[in-house]
Amino acid sequence: MDKKTRWMFWIAGIIIFAIFPKLAGIYYSNIVVSMSVWALFAVSLNMLLGFTGLLSFGHAMYFGTGAYGAALALTHVNGLSFFSAMAAGCLCSVVLSLIVAPVVVRVSGTAFAMIHLAFAQCMFVLALKFRNITGGEDGIGGFSVSHIRIPGLFSLDVTDPAVFFYLSIGTVILNLLVLWFVIQTPFGQVMAGTRDNVKRIEYLGFRVSHTKAVVYVLAAGSAGVAGAVSAMHQNLVAVNDAYGMMVSVLPIMIVMVGGARSFFGPIYGAVFFGFLEEYVTAYTDKFELILGLILIIFIMYWPLGLAGIFLKLKFKWLTRKQFLKRSGGGAG
């Protein structure tokens, strides 16, 4: 792809994004919003799983904390806008991750995964028991997000689905860009190094546990943003949708199906799961059974996920094109 087609591609993307809510209607733009939330959540998990080699079975604890943080801020503070509520959710997740980080960066592998499973379950129980704060099983709902306004210039009504679509997708893309740039920096290389060979990174003079902690907090903050956007999208936070086991399991599946070694893999995965949920739940309520089977099949036969399949197809296509070009040139 040369520079010109890339620019065309970006411009086309922006135009589609701009007219999508008008074109596809509220129902499908809501689906796209929830897909984008899952994509951000899964990419934040993949910062740990794919790029640093840390598997967490309890990433829901940050998603849920972001969601509860935003919802609590909106119910208790009057006149909070979309961005301040999101910042509140993100901040809550970051604070929680800073508390947990000193313990979890000292372990890795299976221990890291299982400790998170237990911590997330602990958050689940706490959210269920502190009924006076979190509303217990009923959760928190019906909070109002006030308009974003710059006096004299404009005022945006966030309750309008189209406006919410632009805001949430914009937020998600911005956050994804931040994570993308982090991976491109030398720090990103150190991350990959801790995944591939911890000893060598230590010998080179980098501090492994500090690196892990920074990635960890970054991933937690992004998950918090995803949680906050999801809370405002649903206008409801319930324990099961915030801290439930499936909230931790689903992003792992999205990452595995999308492809853990690729930055964009989880985004493909999120789109795949968005459609899957849309069509499978229409026929059967045994969604988890189907998810489990798909996960097993992908791990056994396509361990690089959809991103790996795309890459393979691209290589096939490219080599054929180049071969044709070269043989054509030879004949001429």
């Binding site: 599946m253 045994k286 969604f287 059974l289 489990g292 097993i296 791990i299 056994m300 361990p303």
Partner: peptide, 28 residues
Amino acid sequence: KKVHVYGPMAELILTMGVSLVILDGVKV
């Protein structure tokens, strides 16, 4: 056995998949 070559993380996630299938399978 088949997944062993992809490393311990893949094995862990595989067992998670099996557990999901069993958990929902008994309901069926």
